[in-house]
């Protein structure tokens, strides 16, 4: 009787813990960028991993001076960015990986919204729907000689609003962010 009791207690503990701490992996718009193995992590020029509570706090912190940005943040569950500089890198190898990622996205039910190929540059924007709403955005971009970018944004998304907001932000100005911004913990 003793062993089953302990076993039951341990199982209950795990169920309680895992049930309350449900992972982002269950979100329909989530894409495991690490599993795509697009870029070597130690060569990234920008890595952003923002999840859960920190995004809500960003929304609260910016509500006063940037309400549109705050409203976008309030709807998001995660933001992941990987930027890989291509100067001196094998762009062909990266292209192969991006092509593979595109196939994987389509296999997983992501809807291709934009595909642009021009002069070696490639841009893909995919959206994931859930219950009739956009629940995730994945952007893959390759610009030989410059950089390759992979972005996954999870949550309630208005892509037009994202693009409009994004054009207001200046990357050089924001480069003060550490190159390998880790998930705040």
């Amino acid at each position: 009787m003793r062993k089953p009791t302990i076993l039951t207690a341990v199982l209950l503990f795990l169920v309680v813990s895992s049930g309350l701490a449900q992972g982002l992996e269950d979100q329909p718009g989530y894409l495991p960028l690490e599993k795509l193995d697009l870029f070597p992590r130690d060569k990234l020029s920008v890595e952003v991993n923002l999840e859960g509570a920190i995004l809500r706090m960003v929304a609260e912190a910016t509500r006063g001076d940037d309400p549109e940005f705050a409203s976008v943040m309030a709807g998001l569950k995660a933001i992941y960015v990987r930027v890989f500089p291509l100067s001196g890198a094998d762009a062909g190898a990266v292209k192969t990986k991006i092509d593979r990622a595109v196939r994987m996205l389509e296999d997983r039910g992501w809807h291709s919204t934009v595909k642009v190929r021009e002069g070696g540059e490639e841009t893909y924007i995919y959206l994931k729907e859930a219950d009739g709403k956009i629940a995730g955005l994945t952007l893959l971009s390759l610009e030989p000689g410059d950089e390759a970018v992979a972005i996954n944004i999870v949550g309630r998304i208005d892509p037009a609003q994202l693009g409009r907001l994004g054009r207001h932000f200046d990357i050089p100005q924001l480069e003060k962010v550490p190159a390998h911004g880790k998930k705040p913990e």
């Binding site: 912190a61 994004g166 962010v177 705040p184």
Partner: peptide, 14 residues
Amino acid sequence: QATRQARLALAYVG
């Protein structure tokens, strides 16, 4: 810092 990172993410989208 997270705010700057989120803006950076959107800047890359832009």
